[in-house]
Design a protein around this nucleic acid. Structure first.
Length: 357
DNA sequence: TATACGTGGTG
DNA sequence: TCACCAAGTAT
């Protein structure tokens, strides 16, 4: 692309008129910028806003966060997904306090030594908070750069990445790189959108190779679609007196560190559940002998590459002692909220809380 | 380089 | 209903 000064002027004029007013755009505080960037990873703005507000109210500074318990950080993250982000956030906060005297680094190389901060997030923090000319490539700018350049090959390949990061570097102005990066992302997010981009209102369509060629619909090249597998799981809420059994998901499983009711896969699309088999499996896994109750719900959800039908079943503990090797906890429905729950745990918990009232 | 990691909104 | 998508990183 040529004539960057004109490109910058048009883009920034559009941004001044059209930028959304987002909470993390009202500040240059690197801490707030950092929190927002981590939350926004693979997550929509609409989903993030309430989490961002709550998180900042509870942990207003990197020192406050560094002093937090992981459980409390996870509770604030509950429902947002990608929970390793929350754990890395806490680890990084401790590192900032201990290794950087509580001051956020501004150098992109140093930023990338912090857990959870990769190339994009380092560039975002450096440019937004410190106005350092650092390049960024993420979902919005990837799409925008591909169309501006008319780049028809795979932008996710190593060659494609090199092309895009090189352009991201070249497009930066000498003054105000942070604002320009914001404007590029905003254009990608609101105008240069995946399907039917709004080229009619785009301030830089005159600079766009794909627009000139009419190839907006095939640029960027789509990523190969993932195959979904349908499976059936059961979740069993085992009651002992007023309390139910929760299990902390181990580090090598999904929802690592979060809590859930006992849950496991059963043979595919079984219309009726084999309660004898269920009782045996529960005994193997927990050491408890149970009496199965009724199925109180069937929930559908998708996670990673699975479409899951989840049968929620109640049970009563009759006998037996809990096996070690897991974090178990007997918890009253009123206390469920003290534990960061997986999405399946949270939905089942809501049903039980309703019943117990 | 390929895969795991979550969830909710949208057409 | 369902495929696609969202301010990526770690391994």
């Amino acid at each position: 692309m040529k004539n960057f000064p004109t490109f910058h002027r048009k883009l920034l004029a559009w941004y001044a008129d059209s930028a959304r007013d987002l909470p993390w755009r009202r500040t240059h505080d690197p801490y707030r910028i950092w929190i927002s960037e981590i939350m926004l990873q693979q997550t929509t703005v609409v989903a993030v806003i309430p989490y961002f507000e709550r998180f900042l109210a509870r942990f207003p500074s990197v020192d406050a966060l560094a002093a937090a318990d992981e459980t409390n950080v996870l509770r604030l993250w509950e429902g947002l997904g990608y929970y390793s982000r929350a754990k890395n956030l806490l680890r990084a906060a401790k590192a900032v306090v201990e290794k950087h005297h509580g001051q956020f680094p501004s150098d992109i190389e140093v930023l990338q030594t912090l857990p959870g901060i990769g190339r994009y997030t380092a560039g975002a923090i450096a440019s937004f908070a410190f106005d350092i000319p650092a390049p960024i490539v993420e979902a919005n700018t990837l799409r925008l750069y591909c169309r501006l350049l008319g780049y028809q090959s795979d932008p996710r390949s190593s060659v494609g990445q090199k092309v895009l990061w090189t352009f991201a570097e070249a497009v930066l102005p000498k003054t105000g790189p942070g604002r320009l990066n914001q404007a590029l992302m905003e254009l990608g997010a609101t105008v240069c959108i995946p399907k039917e981009p709004r080229c009619g209102i785009c301030p830089v369509s005159a600079h766009c190779h794909a627009f000139r060629d009419g190839t907006q619909s095939v640029v960027p090249q789509q990523k190969s679609k993932k195959v979904m597998t349908a499976i059936t799981e059961v979740s069993i809420a085992i009651r002992r007196g007023p309390k139910y059994l929760l299990r902390r998901c181990p580090l090598n499983e999904r929802w690592a560190g979060l809590w859930d009711f006992l849950r496991f896969e059963i043979a595919g699309d079984s219309k009726s559940v084999d309660t004898a088999h269920l009782t045996d499996t529960v005994r193997e896994r927990t050491g408890l002998i149970i009496e199965c109750g009724s199925q109180i719900a069937e929930l559908k959800h998708a996670v990673t590459r699975y479409r899951i039908t989840l049968k929620c079943i109640t049970a009563i503990r009759q006998d037996g002692r809990l096996k070690s090797g897991n974090d178990w906890k007997w918890v009253k429905p009123a206390d469920f909220q003290k534990y960061p729950l997986s999405v399946t745990g949270r939905r089942f918990a809501e049903l039980l809380q309703r019943d117990s009232m």
